[in-house]
Simulated assay, not measured.
Amino acid sequence: MSGDFVTVRLGGQLLGIPVLLVHDVLRLGVLTRVPRAPAMVAGVMNLRGRIVTAIDVRQSLGLPPRDAAAPSMGIVVEQDGQPYALVVDAVGDVVSVAADRFEAHPATLSPAWRAVTDGVYRLDELMLSLNIGRLLAGGMAKAA
């Protein structure tokens, strides 16, 4: 489980997204709300001619909403041929992590985080390895 990850912050937690899954990193501007969409759908946007659904990851995980004045960033990924912008608090660096740094979920990790991550990497702090497929599948299943 070694590899390169784009690091992001969400509610103070450090997360890693495999770099090969990341298509774009962008500052989110105004999103167009979608009537009757699940709460986790923050809206949609046009990105180079493609309609991208913005997913509020905080909402998906049951975290408190971000301060409306705080800027948010989007990590654009593709799942099942559809682009999604994962709305996060901040984007960090790309880090290379050795396999010996990987561990299974700690017993104290909340069920919400456990459901959408593959495990943790011990860096200067714990970095949860985000599983995009499970994040989107779980959120969409709750919305149905």
Rank of each mutant, 00 (worst) to 15 (best):
residue 55 I to G: 05
residue 51 I to P: 05
residue 90 A to G: 06
residue 93 D to P: 04
residue 120 V to L: 15
residue 16 G to Q: 07
residue 25 V to Q: 02
residue 8 V to Y: 02
residue 135 L to S: 11
residue 18 P to A: 13
residue 87 V to N: 02
residue 129 S to W: 01
residue 7 T to G: 00
residue 73 M to F: 06
residue 91 V to E: 09
residue 39 A to S: 14
residue 123 L to T: 01
residue 39 A to L: 12
residue 49 G to T: 09
residue 105 H to A: 03
residue 120 V to T: 14
residue 137 A to Q: 11
residue 37 A to Y: 12
residue 3 G to H: 04
residue 60 S to K: 13
residue 108 T to I: 04
residue 134 R to G: 02
residue 139 G to C: 12
residue 65 P to R: 13
residue 17 I to T: 02
residue 122 R to I: 11
residue 48 R to V: 05
residue 120 V to P: 10
residue 130 L to I: 00
residue 111 P to I: 12
residue 89 D to A: 12
residue 67 D to I: 10
residue 92 G to L: 00
residue 67 D to L: 12
residue 112 A to P: 06
residue 19 V to Q: 10
residue 65 P to G: 11
residue 73 M to C: 09
residue 126 L to H: 02
residue 84 Y to N: 14
residue 7 T to K: 01
residue 98 A to I: 05
residue 114 R to H: 15
residue 74 G to N: 04
residue 33 R to Y: 08
residue 52 V to M: 10
residue 137 A to V: 07
residue 88 V to H: 03
residue 55 I to M: 11
residue 140 M to K: 08
residue 11 G to I: 00
residue 117 T to L: 04
residue 43 G to E: 09
residue 110 S to Y: 05
residue 99 A to E: 15
residue 35 P to M: 06
residue 95 V to D: 02
residue 140 M to D: 02
residue 25 V to L: 08
residue 18 P to R: 15
residue 58 R to Y: 09
residue 18 P to T: 05
residue 53 T to L: 09
residue 106 P to H: 00
residue 137 A to Y: 08
residue 64 P to F: 13
residue 21 L to F: 10
residue 123 L to I: 00
residue 93 D to L: 10
residue 43 G to F: 08
residue 78 E to L: 03
